[in-house]
Design a protein around this nucleic acid. Structure first.
Lengths: 203, 203
DNA sequence: GCGCCAGTTTGATCTGGGTCAAGGAGCGCG
DNA sequence: CGCGCTCCTTGACCCAGATCAAACTGGCGC
């Protein structure tokens, strides 16, 4: 049941496989879910971490495309098989429902960010959100928010997540560093120096 | 199982009822799901039409508040009862899962709108979306997109849905009217005169 | 170590949409 | 019928963040 597959950073996860759509479970790594307009604007609409489901069981294929942000290992299922299996195993469907409801909550909170928050608020919210989702090595944390961590995102991807341009993201990072709120030891690394200030900025 | 309740336009649907959280099914009318910041900015994160579920089964209460846009009838359940009932009826859970997945897809499409679309694109997308969801009387259409319909939203609510200000919404409506793309016979009524133009604008 | 190149930062300028401030316009009510 | 209230439109101006245009930086191959 379900074949292992590895995807390296930057590679798309293809949804077509011998005539059937796929559903997958993330084992390791981080992937982005995006939608794009015809003229190339991109919005990241979801981020999948280990243990998250991706794909669209039942009904038609979803519009989002999936690309690995880090090297990743996933477990893929032909959708037909998965659908049948799920319908025969209510416990699995229940689990899936709980996860989908949680994801919907997170997505709705992100809508508020996209529609109503300013650039400084977006960046602060993003950093706090990341510190909760990432331990030092990029996996799920059960040890509370991390003080320092490595982003699985480039600046452009942060921009695509927050509905900003790369220049604005860069300027906001520089500002936070200048104000002593965060340290940026390397392009991808963040250390939170003043969490209270970030929480204030996040609104 | 489940008590009927009526909510008039503008009234909130209270989630606390003799010590237990509620879950509800919309029978008639339209309701908005919103989140707000401390300083009063509001974002509509979902709209519930007849047959939609609202509330948060399993897990903790969701952050969104629910307000009726039109007079509405809903069927409410104590959440504990609902959770137990759902777990004993896999068919219900399956239905709920399908709806939740569909809602997640719609929400993700809306993220693209909020993060990356311009005001004219937002308005055009909104009008096309409404024409698909509303028949003349504000109920679900199975007759294809409506050419004219009554919005269940005030201008301010359209702004809260699209992440704009009321003034920008008003100006965009005026522009579309001036360009002969739509007719606006009254504050809440819209008639689409040139669907192709709207689709072009929506991007 | 040196050059190259993608990703990033920084600066200068522009503009879409926000803000502030008046008017209109529909509608319920006396 | 006209008063008043709420919602909506319109106008003038402004500013956060986009756009355009260079530099800078840090890996990596040679």
């Amino acid at each position: 049941m379900g074949r292992r597959r590895t995807v390296s950073a930057g590679e798309p996860l293809i949804w077509e496989d011998d005539d059937s759509l796929l559903v997958a479970n993330v084992i390791e790594g981080v992937l982005k879910l995006t939608t794009s307009t015809a003229d190339g604007r991109e919005q990241i609409v979801g981020v999948a971490y280990p243990s998250d489901f991706i794909g669209r069981p039942f009904g038609q294929t979803s519009a989002a495309s999936v690309v690995a942000l880090t090297d990743a290992r996933v477990c893929v299922f032909a959708r037909n098989d998965f659908d049948r299996f799920a319908r025969e195993h209510p416990e699995l469907e229940h689990k899936l429902l709980e996860r989908t409801l949680a994801e919907l909550d997170r997505t709705r909170a992100w809508m508020m960010l996209l529609g109503r928050k300013s650039a400084p608020e977006k960046i602060a919210t993003f950093l706090l959100d990341m510190s909760e989702r990432l331990a030092d090595n990029g996996c799920m944390a059960h040890t509370g928010p991390a003080r320092q961590f490595t982003l699985p995102f480039s600046r452009q991807q942060v921009a695509d997540l927050l509905g900003l341009t790369i220049e604005t993201v860069s300027r906001q990072f520089t500002k936070l560093k200048a104000d002593g709120v965060v340290a940026l030891p390397s392009r991808r690394d963040v250390e939170i120096l003043d969490r209270a200030a970030l929480e204030m900025l996040a609104g």
